[in-house]
Design a protein around this nucleic acid. Structure first.
Lengths: 337, 337
DNA sequence: CTGAAAGCGCTTACAG
DNA sequence: CTGAAAGCGCTTACAG
């Protein structure tokens, strides 16, 4: 009630200094914990702050320290519904980790053709670093960040081993799942995959192939269809696979798997009785399907959190591992037997 | 190559002023376009800026103007997969609109129990305003924003007519779709709905009821099940509805509708031959289902964009409409006849 | 039309 | 242990 405290201007370090009869320097030190300061005065300041709900203007602090305390999260503006749970969980992990370190998350939505949102954030100096949530073989955002010296970490893998990257071990996961299928006696198997410009698509394919490469002699046949991007194509492929007597159809993700299930459903083909079905990525999109689908599950929130922590450590000047691989879980469910 | 231009510090207004032999004031004016300035000097400055790829430090600008040029987007940290496309499209609309006005979007993920991320963003003075992407009957983020005098707009409806809100016209849309069904002669219909603490759930219910209220005498029966939140419950409901000879099952959203379809599928009940199926919200989650599902479609990206533009106008001190209702599209598809 | 100066809310050598 | 002062990169009355 003492004059200026009435207007709704936010409290500043100067107000506190004046009120307490100390200098702004002292208040700043009490808050930051940096520099020598008497325990007495420190307590006084801290108490005042507590009582008056002061919280520092992070923007001003940033300007003085040449930081923004913002992290850029680069998200695709073009997407596929099966990928959404991934980005959402990722975002949750990132924003929680950022929050707990005093940072905020600023989003930049990009497409391979248009990365202006990211360019703006960087040019305007609004972020201290960035997190890519997807990696492509020819990755425009990544290229831009490198050229402009912006610290970043990539979620997903990339062949450029200069970039700090973190990913789930898709390759091993797909190998393990494929191995399990082969161990159970599958001899006619097919793989349907999506866009090969996504590095993750290639990793999954490698894992699938690893399973065969690891067998001395495998007396069976496999068919592989890549760059499949819509339901009609899947339908035609399934038709053909049924004629061939395929025992198991593996899809690289839940979108494709959903298409496979549709194709089987309209033909009244029972799963797993007549044919088995597997997805290489559990997006929860098929969570409520009956039968439940055998697939691989990753902890995406953790992935986001770890990525964020890596970036934060880089910003602190620490050295971090160039490559981090996180685990997976193979979930055998009703769609296989 | 002239001395300081080599280090990778960003160019500042001071550098330009020095280089051009004018004052910082002049440079600032040339950039902002505010204040009188000679056309000659203006051109010189602009040209220099262009050639040297200068872009202003928005944080510093913000500090001087007491703005951040950041908008907070409040997202639920707990979600349902069918809602994801909504939030994603919404985000796209918001971030595009924000971008084109020189603003960035900062995310705050909240749950009804935990709104600390939002509190941090506000306390730290990192946002100029906020956009709520969901409204609840007892809405903690909304309450917080109001109490702290943060300008915001709510996507979705709320009973508090002091808040600036924008929504699709769910009520009319649901009424129209229901009317169409009744006009086609449905006499035994059922509605399955979700969480009634979401205001949108209530709007849809109202629309459904409106259709009946609008008929002089309607010689049929309807059943309503609300607060249904998992597949098992849906399964039991469907079982009962089949016994009752229900002709059409309307679900409030695609998640519930997906559950209905599962329940029908395992019982081998043909849609629409034996029973018709409708969803009150097209999330694209069922986009590839066969048969395709009759539902209502909204332009969510536009919703996000308009919400953002409303907020931006509020920040400019303009008066804006308290309530904006956007259109819809009723899509009759294969699941009804 | 142009500029010197003060200010936004913080931090941080430097001096005492 | 504490403070005056300069600085972060901008803007904006005020004076000329």
């Amino acid at each position: 009630m003492i004059g200026r405290s009435m207007d709704d201007r936010n409290l500043t370090i100067g107000d506190i200094a004046e009120e307490l009869g100390v200098s702004k320097t002292t208040v700043s030190r009490a808050i930051s914990g940096k520099g020598r300061i008497g325990e007495q005065t420190r307590q006084r300041v801290l108490q005042y702050i507590e009582e008056h709900h002061y919280s520092p203007n992070v923007v001003a602090k940033g300007l003085a320290q040449n930081k923004t305390f913002n992290l850029g999260m680069v998200l695709p503006g073009d997407y596929n519904i099966a990928e959404l749970p991934f980005f959402q969980n990722c975002m949750l992990g990132i924003s929680r980790a950022a929050s707990s370190h005093g940072y905020d998350v600023l989003i930049s939505m990009v497409t391979p053709e248009d990365i202006t949102q990211l360019e703006r954030a960087v040019a305007n100096q609004k972020i201290d670093g960035a997190i890519l949530t997807r990696t492509l073989t020819d990755d425009a955002p990544m290229k831009y960040l490198k050229e402009n010296g912006v610290p970043f970490v990539a979620i997903g893998s990339t062949y450029d081993d200069k970039v700090v990257q973190i990913d789930n071990d898709h390759r091993s996961a797909c190998r393990e799942l494929t191995d399990t299928l082969l161990d159970r006696g599958i001899t006619k198997i097919a793989l349907i995959g999506g866009d090969e410009s996504y590095i993750v698509t290639r990793s999954r394919l490698s894992g699938f192939e690893d399973a065969f490469a690891g067998r001395k002699k495998w007396d069976g046949s496999r068919q592989i269809f890549m760059n499949v991007d819509d339901g009609t194509k899947v339908d035609r492929i399934v038709e053909r696979l049924l004629e061939d007597g395929t025992q198991c159809i593996v899809s690289m993700d839940d979108f494709l798997c959903g298409c496979v299930l549709n194709a089987l459903q309209i033909r009244q083909i029972a799963v797993p009785a007549k044919i088995q079905v597997v997805s290489f990525y559990d997006s929860t999109m098929l969570e409520y399907r009956i039968p439940s689908i055998t697939s691989i599950r990753f902890n995406v929130e953790e992935l986001g959190r770890r990525a964020c922590e890596l970036l934060l450590r880089m910003l602190d000047g620490e050295e971090v591992d160039r490559r981090t691989l996180l685990g997976y879980e193979v979930c055998m469910r009703e769609s296989t037997k």
